[in-house]
Simulated scan of single mutants.
Amino acid sequence: MISKLNLENILFLDIETVPETEYFSELDHTKQELWEHKSKYQRREDFTAEAFYDRAGIWAEFGKIICISVGYVKMEADVRTFRVSSFSGNEIKILKDFKNLIITHFSQTKHLLCAHNGKEFDFPYIARRMIIHNIELPHKLNLFGKKPWEVPHLDTLELWKFGDYKTYTSLKLLTNVLGIPSPKDDIDGSEVYRVYYKEKELDRIIAYCEKDTIAVAQIFLRLRGDTLLHDNEIMSV
């Protein structure tokens, strides 16, 4: 029962990703061929691999992480705060800093990671990018040999499914139906490529990522039947 979990033991998170290079032409010939093959079944016939390249950030083999935002609940004398911060910029530094956070503060058995669609996207994406960069996986992301009930991950999408595997519910839709303020008040995921490469406004992406992290925590609180976070409880650190 999620109502029995200690909120202070949960690290909520969200990631933002983009294609590894701005232009398809910047990939070497082999990588271009691999992308053409990988994307063949996702794009319409009238889309070339190059025209579809702005979607490449979805796949860890062709993308990179530009921001990881994290948030956690802190209780002090019955005063609740939600502290949110971000790692951004160089991907290797992002991954190492995130790993250090987990090892330093969220490495015990009782600690859990939580994201929306995290089991299908955020957690494996982070793990794959760490391996690509020869960064040893922290225990919380190393799932080799673990049984399903030993995996230290929570997924608000999975919790919302209640065993139904036929549907996908976006973060924006779920916040809407649960009466939670929408985090999508500036950009959405489809615009991250443009904002990062064309407009070079990383700060907007960080703000967007942090709002999504807060939304994940709000959904989790709502599913538990807890009071939602108020603006004065949210701190940027």
Rank of each mutant, 00 (worst) to 15 (best):
R44E: 12
E45P: 06
E45Q: 09
E45S: 13
D46M: 13
D46I: 12
F47W: 11
A49V: 12
A49I: 01
E50N: 02
E50I: 06
E50S: 00
A51V: 00
F52C: 05
D54T: 06
D54F: 15
R55K: 11
A56C: 02
G57K: 05
I58N: 01
W59N: 13
W59M: 08
W59G: 06
A60F: 05
E61F: 06
E61C: 00
F62H: 12
F62P: 04
G63H: 11
G63M: 02
K64P: 07
K64M: 12
I65Y: 10
I65K: 09
I66G: 08
I66Q: 08
C67M: 01
C67W: 01
S69M: 11
S69H: 12
S69D: 06
S69F: 13
S69G: 09
V70T: 14
G71H: 14
G71L: 14
Y72E: 03
Y72A: 06
E76N: 14
D78F: 09
D78L: 06
D78I: 00
V79H: 10
V79N: 14
R80Y: 10
R80V: 15
R80T: 07
T81P: 03
T81N: 02
T81K: 13
T81A: 02
F82V: 09
R83H: 13
R83W: 05
S86H: 09
F87N: 10
F87Y: 15
F87M: 11
E91C: 02
E91D: 07
E91F: 10
I92L: 10
I92Y: 01
K93P: 00
I94W: 11
I94M: 11
K96Y: 05
D97N: 14
D97W: 01
D97K: 02
F98S: 04
I102G: 03
I102N: 01
I103C: 14
T104P: 05
T104A: 14
H105W: 05
H105Q: 12
F106Q: 08
F106T: 08
F106R: 13
F106D: 12
F106N: 07
F106P: 07
S107T: 09
K110T: 11
K110P: 01
H111E: 04
H111Q: 05
C114A: 07
C114R: 04
A115Y: 12
A115P: 13
H116I: 08
N117S: 13
N117R: 06
N117Q: 09
G118T: 00
E120M: 09
E120W: 05
F121T: 06
D122V: 12
D122Q: 04
F123S: 14
F123D: 07
F123L: 03
Y125K: 01
I126F: 03
I126Y: 02
R129M: 07
R129L: 09
I131D: 10
I132S: 04
I132H: 11
H133Q: 10
N134A: 11
N134L: 10
I135P: 05
I135T: 00
I135Y: 00
E136L: 10
E136I: 14
L137Y: 10
L137Q: 05
L137F: 08
P138A: 03
H139K: 15
H139M: 04
K140M: 02
K140R: 03
L141D: 10
L141W: 02
